[in-house]
Write a protein that binds this DNA or RNA. Sequence first.
DNA 1: CTGAAAGCGCTTACAG
DNA 2: CTGAAAGCGCTTACAG
Lengths: 334, 334
Amino acid sequence: MEDKNLTIGDIAEELGVSKTTISRAISGKGRIGEKTRKRVLSYIEEHNYRPNVIARGLAQHKTFNLGVVLPGDYNVVELPFFQKCMLGISRVASARGYDVLLSMVTAENTSQLKRVVTNRKIDGAILTRTLANDKPMKYLLQKEVPFVVIGSAADERVIQIDNDHRSACRELTEKLLLSGIRKIALIGSDESHIVTGNRRRGFEDAFAGNGGRKADRKVFMNVVDDVQVQGIVEQLLADGTECIVCMDDFLCGCVLNALQMRQIAVPEQVQVASFYDSTILEYRNPSVTSIRFDVEELGQKACETLLAMLEGEEVERRTLLDYEVRMRDSTKQA
Amino acid sequence: MEDKNLTIGDIAEELGVSKTTISRAISGKGRIGEKTRKRVLSYIEEHNYRPNVIARGLAQHKTFNLGVVLPGDYNVVELPFFQKCMLGISRVASARGYDVLLSMVTAENTSQLKRVVTNRKIDGAILTRTLANDKPMKYLLQKEVPFVVIGSAADERVIQIDNDHRSACRELTEKLLLSGIRKIALIGSDESHIVTGNRRRGFEDAFAGNGGRKADRKVFMNVVDDVQVQGIVEQLLADGTECIVCMDDFLCGCVLNALQMRQIAVPEQVQVASFYDSTILEYRNPSVTSIRFDVEELGQKACETLLAMLEGEEVERRTLLDYEVRMRDSTKQA
DNA sequence: CTGAAAGCGCTTACAG
DNA sequence: CTGAAAGCGCTTACAG
């Protein structure tokens, strides 16, 4: 139907005006008569003309691409997080005329990100996870590529979009303490993830209040596999621990399995809670008390913030999104 | 350190040759003296020059971007599949100088894909899932965008990369029959997914041989949620079914839960197998008999095939990759 | 073997 | 309000 490769030049010729005029009609920049503008626009509409974004990009030194860097080595439990992030990001990106270029990086290999920036194929980037000593982050900082991170970072210069993990974990822990629990344990994962520190701090915060004074707490950090969890659970049971709080849902899954194998009833014999709420635990029986974050919103907000930066606006260094504590069947209600 | 925006023109001037020469030295196309070539190349090396891919693309009518379309509405269980696909794809893409542009589409909304193609931002596309009446597929076909699908499609014109699900399912089913099972059931999911049909056919194939003659089989299709599974399991248990085969791991998870709730021992009282092998079942106890596919290889192969097409090579309409049947603890060995 | 020139499809001072 | 011209950074016939 429509001419496959209509250009600004074709239209100019057809309408007997200059390419400049066509360009202005499209972009809306520069003075142009209302009549000519309408004429151009309706011609464009009718002939289904679409400007060549690549050419425009070349002229404007822009690509209209956003780089999203995804860890290539994440585990199954984290997957839904990245999926939802991506959904949020790609929605606002495409609504604003941008596309998403993917780079998968691992701790050792950040070459995909480097390609994309040295080839100047992106205008900015979004990091969907940050480690304590994050290579992609350093790289982008050094190359002066505008970027935001989803999560938190120590560096003052980086723009961060995160949920308020610390408050969330404090609030959940407080609720548990208020329900009368006096012997509680926290099992945490990799301390090189910034979020781990925040969650831990939130947990500790809860004991600063009155409720916590009398509570006995144990903390296990850098627990990464099923085997370790088995050992810890064993120990905690022997110890008469009333509630096991897990920093993430992978650990929580391990704990639940360990309890199940030992025929320990949840929440009757021991209560369980998680500092995250992935769909992976959704169908668990009993349902587990945890904290819910709107991850898609996180992605959206990150993308909006990046776009604002690209347009030269000032943005907050740190925006904290909300959360929701969900008491479920794995803990006893007060 | 290096000049941020070195161009081909700068180098030409610096070296006292023409831009043409620089271009030829880089691309390797066209006759050029060995000496000048070396001279140019070493200058480039030394000054860390990187050609502007966008500009090159404009001149060559290429983008060096591949569009990968991901369903925006997949469920948790399928996630690892897409993750591994992406890994395979993005590895070969970046090794060959291409980047990956992501489009998330749903059954109703394919606008992200459309943007990317009408904006001419990709040279070709990879579909990571196909439905029976696939919109993105039709669209790409109509727009004459080169593409490959991961999975199968009825249309003769589409290039497909898939595992040999049919053989795999036949082989697994045969093994089960050979172990002496005589009352077997298949629980299947959405028939609008092409792969579902292939798996079912493989299952049926197994009964064509001698082993199957005497076996009693039941098939349940279009089972999509936990509740349905509960009912079916109930019925199958009453019926004395010896083995329940699930078409995918979501269903398998549901079946295992249903059995667990009823305190039915696997494999002692009823055996269970799955036609897929996601990491989601990895930590299940007992481990479940299933079929393993190398999904990352699938992604790689798809990307290689697409790149071959873009270079004008002839490619196979259908390439089937291998599989591996894994007998585990959820079935009794013969 | 090498170069001048036109072209890819847009944008944007500058001039009128 | 409108246009001619130069430019974005490359490639590629064409000529020599």
